[in-house]
């Protein structure tokens, strides 16, 4: 197994005694494209900042290419590209000046590449960055992070302000890079359809921990919604392996499980002799199930009618 590119071990981060990250473990291997999902305020940005050494963990440790993130060498930093939620630009510089200025910090800056991205993404080199729209600023932020061809690219909500065609352009640039250079990407987003196109892995952040981390295909193959129909009333207790959440009704139950397979189906038949309908779920639905789920599965208040 290759050394993880980026890693968190028992990471904790609190603000004013309020825990945002609560003993989180994560290890991203080279070549993985990881989409980070979480509701607003779940700590995606905090996690990203801790991973990159921009915030000091309350406890635990983060490593980038094996080095402590809080104390990274310049050589390691030069292998990183980071796009913050709001690109930090110097408003008096033009797009071109901003690129040249950023490039001056890097040994292996590819000015020609940057030039063609500016052109492809329809930015005008002579415009002052202070006059750019939010979407244009975001584009420039991405270009600045790609200019030195980083081995690890970390993006915090990179596409939130981009229009659909700009998003597709952005995705295809990433896809090109990944194909040719095998680099590693971590990005947070709310737009699950983008994530579904390019992510190899998904991390779902909930209650300060990763509720799920693994290959996207495995998540889609395994995470299913089951409708169980019971001949003589739904049981009050349903302990299934990998249960995400369930709603109990009189004679049926709607159940979400993380890893559905034939074994589980057989077990359901054996134990409750129930009729089972299996539904596929897309990432958005899966995300809603995970993020809406309480730690302990709760039953809906249908008892009244029974």
């Amino acid at each position: 197994m290759n050394l993880p590119v980026i890693q968190a071990e028992r990471l904790e981060k609190s603000f004013d005694g309020q825990a945002v990250l609560d003993g989180l473990d994560l290890a991203i291997a080279p070549g993985q494209i990881v989409g980070l999902l979480g509701t607003n305020g779940s700590g995606k940005t905090t996690l990203i900042k801790c991973l990159l050494g921009l915030l000091r963990p309350t406890a635990g440790v983060c490593r980038v290419f094996g080095e402590d993130a809080w104390d990274m060498s310049p050589a390691t930093k030069s292998r990183l590209g980071y796009v913050p939620q709001e690109a930090e630009l110097l408003p008096w510089m033009t797009v071109q000046q901003m690129c040249d200025y950023t490039g001056a910090f890097y040994k292996h800056w590819r000015a020609d590449d940057v030039q063609s991205l500016i052109c492809q993404w329809q930015l005008s080199p002579d415009q002052r960055t202070g006059a750019l729209s939010v979407g244009q600023r975001q584009k420039l932020g991405v270009i600045l992070a790609l200019g030195h061809h980083p081995d690890l690219l970390v993006l915090d909500e990179p596409v939130a302000s981009l229009d659909p065609s700009a998003r597709r352009q952005f995705l295809s640039t990433l896809i090109d890079r990944v194909e040719v250079e095998q680099n590693t990407i971590l990005f947070s987003t709310h737009i699950t359809s983008d994530l579904e196109r390019i992510a190899s892995h998904v991390a779902i952040l909930r209650a300060g921990k990763l509720a799920w981390f693994g290959p996207l295909d495995e998540l889609k193959d395994g995470c299913k919604r089951l409708r169980l129909y019971f001949a003589d009333g739904a049981p009050t207790d349903l302990d299934l392996p990998g249960l995400v959440r369930w709603d109990r009704h009189q004679n049926h139950a709607v159940v979400t499980v993380a890893s559905f397979d034939q074994g589980l189906l057989d077990a359901l038949h054996r134990r409750w002799n129930c009729d089972v309908r299996v539904e596929d779920m897309n990432l958005e639905e899966i995300f809603l199930e995970w993020s809406g789920a309480a730690e302990v599965p709760s039953t809906v208040a249908t008892e009244v009618g029974s």
Binding site: I33, R197, A199, S200
Partner: peptide, 18 residues
């Protein structure tokens, strides 16, 4: 090719390879 598919369909090349 994997590359042609990934570019045209806008999906991760690893997905096509898989």
């Amino acid at each position: 090719s994997v590359r042609a598919m990934a570019t045209e369909l806008g999906v991760n090349p690893m997905t096509i390879s898989k």
